[in-house]
Each structure stands twice: as structure tokens, then as C-alpha cells.
Design a protein around this nucleic acid. Structure first.
Lengths: 236, 236
DNA sequence: TTACTTAGTGTAAAAAATACACACTATATT
DNA sequence: AATATAGTGTGTATTTTTTACACTAAGTAA
């Protein structure tokens, strides 16, 4: 790559948001990447992100970026870390705040096909296995986000955001297995999940499969909220 | 308070660090506050913090601020959240990155008496029970830091940073009780702590107490690192 | 010597986590 | 109609972890 520093204008301190947007589809965990069509890092893949505007809170900026790329609103986003190394951006000091989001890809009617933006040629849902080297320090940012959800899923049922509204226990288990990167025992997983008492069993079954159809479940937000209250305990 | 917005100059986007520096002394958990002697919020108590300089990473800025106030270096600091509401600073857009640190107050030879800085009249170790209303959104920042350590202490032995190098199990338990805000069972606490196998029992005993002296322990960093590796599990 | 104060210790019960294997059921195939 | 196929759905015994609970020992002060 050319020495961009000598060509591009320097700017003063600015801050940006970078979003790690996870999606789950057909058993695969994906992340939304954009292909940049502006310098620096033209033609590289990067996490979607943009500068925070003057009259916009960080949370709003993150929501805006998610909306522009996916058409989705009201998605839960979580700030996970802020990256402020001096030279992380070749054009000057850019401190970036990392947010992640988790959204369902399959059967989500509100989800726009990933669009072209003014700084990206295209946006693509990329399976984690196919992750290319990313622009800036986005490898580091992605890794931190992934560590965060892997950690969080172990004690909070955030995984539901990634599934269709109605899902089978096997689908849920696969998602856990993909995120935790290990096989789980079917009986123990079901026992534990159902014990949490945050799932609503539906009267419906899976359709269009060429084998015995599984029961469908729904995530029960009311009950979830109750579980969420429980504190981490240190015994008596 | 006067409408400072009309008097003070506005500045463009800047970022700062705010530090929540916890200390533990004589059974009390304290936080280092400064009394501001410049506008805005002149005469208010605030968390120590300062602008991030152009050629300084966030981590370095946090360490610098800690050093200026306490004389301590090489203390573990953890970034916990970034605050970016539009109007959190009356003079303009200031996004601030929160760091916390935990340091031992009793018997720490390197600890300077809290000094005067160029924007603070004094700095005072303030017991959490006596916490005044703080400048800017520092109440919110403090609360988030405290929630973070309360949560973290439940699964990581960060509490040692707050104790003198040699400590008794009772002191350790008291610290846990203060942070978690509940009484713990002595036998279960000891069993659990010793089971972690991160303490080194010393041949020494407490001195200068008017009752049976307790054994002293030391925190064993090597063993701690090993424990730290263990992942959160989701069963098989 | 006695009173006082904290240190230090063990066990039983309950709850949670783990390991493990086979029969059932819906569909597709012949 | 029979059979093959592929994933669904279920229970129990074992181990580990967490919890509840009360007394004796040791040192100091009077």
C-alpha cells in the first residue's frame, strides 16, 4: 500500500463508532463487513463505522450506523470497548468506540439487503470462518467483540437475538456451540435451558424438514427480565 | 450555579479520561476525589480526569493521571465504559473514557499524599458512605465503575490490589463484604478462597493486635495467572 | 486467673453440573 | 407396504459445588 499519510489530509482529534454486527443464518455465525471504496484502506474489508456527529450521543451514533446498513431499529446494542491507540488511523487521532449488535438474518422481514453507502462499495454478511484481514485495527476490535459475546452468552441468554422468532432447541444449541466453539450435550443443554424458564413452548412444529419435526419455542421476554435481575452470587 | 455556558469558551470535540481510583483502608472502601478550583463546576467534587493528549494512548493517559495524583506506577487499570452524551460537559462535546484502579492505602510506601494539581484545590480519599454529589455526570461514572468491580470480584480475585501485601483472611473477607455489601460466612469464605489456591500462607502473624494474632497471607501472582486462564464454562 | 476478643476449624444436606444411550417419529425411497 | 434415514426427545446415577451451621483455641489485657 502507498504511504497514504503523505497524500491524505490530516485531521484533528475525532471520534468514531465501529460496529460489530453479528448475524446467524443456516447454522453459521456471520459478521457484517463493508468493502471500503475510499482511502485510507481503499478496497479493504472493514467493520462498519462512522464519525460521531456533533449533536449525537454515542448510543445514537451506533444505532444510526446499524440502521443505515440494515434498516433495523430498536436492536439491542452494547458498547464493549474504546480503542485509542495513537496511530490506529493513518490520517490522525481517531478514538473509536466499539459496539456490537446481534440480529437474526433468517426470516427477518425488516432486514434490508446490505446496501451501498457513500464510503463502501458493498456490505457483506461474512461467515466468521471466512474473515479476511481487516482495515485499521479492526481485527483487534472484532476479536474483542467476539470475546465479549462468548463470555456474555455463558451467563446471559443474549443468543436469542440471533435466532428467528420461533426456533427449535437444536437450533439454539447449535448457536451456542458455534459461539462457544465446543460441542454441548443435548440432554444437559435442554435441561438447563428449559430450567431457566425463559422459553415458551409453542403448539407449532418445524415445517419442511424431511425428518421428524421439532417443537418450536419462543423467547419469553418477561421471564427473561426476571432472570436478568439475579445477581452474581458469592454465597451467603 | 451560574449559566456557565454563556461565559466560558466553547471548544470543539475533545476526549478525556476519568479515573475512579478505589482504595481500602481500615476496613473502609474509599475513592479519590478532587475538589475543582476552576470553572465549570468550580468548588465541586469530581473524579480525577484530564484531557487525553495528542500523542498519548488512552491507557497511557489513565496511567499518567493516576501517577500525577498518587505517585504510583504500574498499577493495573481497567477501562470500563465510555460516556458520550451530548451535553455532559457545559463547554462543548467531551467524550470521556472511564478507567478504574484499585490501590492499597495502608502501608503503601510509594503512595504520595494526595497532591494539589493545577485544576484541583485538593484531592481526598473519600469513604463511599460520604460520597458527595459530583460534578458533570461523574455520579453516573462512579456508579458504573462500582458496579463493574462488584461484578468482577465475584469471578476474579481483583480484590488483592486493595490490600496490603500481607493480609489476613479476615481482612480479605471484610473487603469482599464491603464491595458486595453483604455478610459472608467465615468458614465458607475461607474454604473457597484457599481452594482457589492463589494465596501463599506465610510464617508470619499479625502484630500489634490486642487479641489472638491471625496468620498472614500473600497473593500468589503465578497461581493467579493460571486461574485466570480458566474459561467460563457451559458444561460439556 | 479470669474475662475478653478474634482465629480457626468440619460435616451434613442441598443444589448444580456432568456423563451417558436408546427408542420414537416423520419423511423419503423402493 | 416395507424399509431406510435422520433428527427428536427423554432419565438417571455420579460427582462437584454450594450452603448452613457452632464451638474450641489462642493470645491479650485487666
Amino acid at each position: 500500500m502507498k504511504a497514504l499519510e503523505t497524500i491524505l489530509p490530516k485531521f484533528d482529534s475525532v471520534f468514531s463508532i465501529d460496529c460489530v454486527i453479528f448475524g446467524f443464518d443456516e447454522g453459521e455465525l456471520k459478521v457484517l463487513l463493508i468493502e471500503r471504496n475510499v482511502e485510507p484502506f481503499k478496497d479493504w474489508w472493514a467493520l462498519p463505522g462512522y464519525l460521531v456527529e456533533q449533536e449525537e450521543s454515542l448510543d445514537n451514533a451506533a444505532e444510526r450506523i446499524l440502521y443505515e446498513l440494515t434498516g433495523l431499529k430498536g436492536i439491542y446494542m452494547d458498547q464493549f470497548y474504546t480503542f485509542g491507540d495513537v496511530n490506529r488511523h493513518p490520517q490522525g487521532r481517531v478514538i473509536t468506540v466499539g459496539y456490537y449488535a446481534m440480529i437474526r438474518l433468517s426470516g427477518n422481514k425488516d432486514l434490508k439487503p446490505a446496501p451501498i453507502t457513500n464510503y463502501a462499495r458493498r456490505a457483506v454478511w461474512t461467515p466468521l470462518a471466512d474473515l479476511p484481514k481487516l482495515a485499521f485495527d479492526h481485527d483487534k476490535i472484532f476479536k474483542r467483540a467476539f470475546d465479549k459475546i462468548r463470555n456474555k452468552i455463558s451467563y446471559q441468554p443474549i443468543a436469542f437475538e440471533l435466532l428467528p422468532e420461533k426456533f427449535t432447541l437444536t437450533q439454539l444449541q447449535h448457536l451456542y456451540e458455534v459461539i462457544l466453539n465446543k460441542k454441548l450435550d443435548k440432554r444437559n443443554f435442554r435441561k438447563k435451558m428449559l430450567n431457566y424458564d425463559i422459553l415458551k413452548e409453542l403448539d407449532e412444529k418445524q415445517k419442511g424438514v424431511s425428518y421428524r419435526a421439532a417443537k418450536l419455542y419462543k423467547f419469553d421476554k418477561r421471564k427473561y427480565a426476571r432472570l436478568f435481575q439475579k445477581e452474581l452470587s458469592f454465597g451467603k
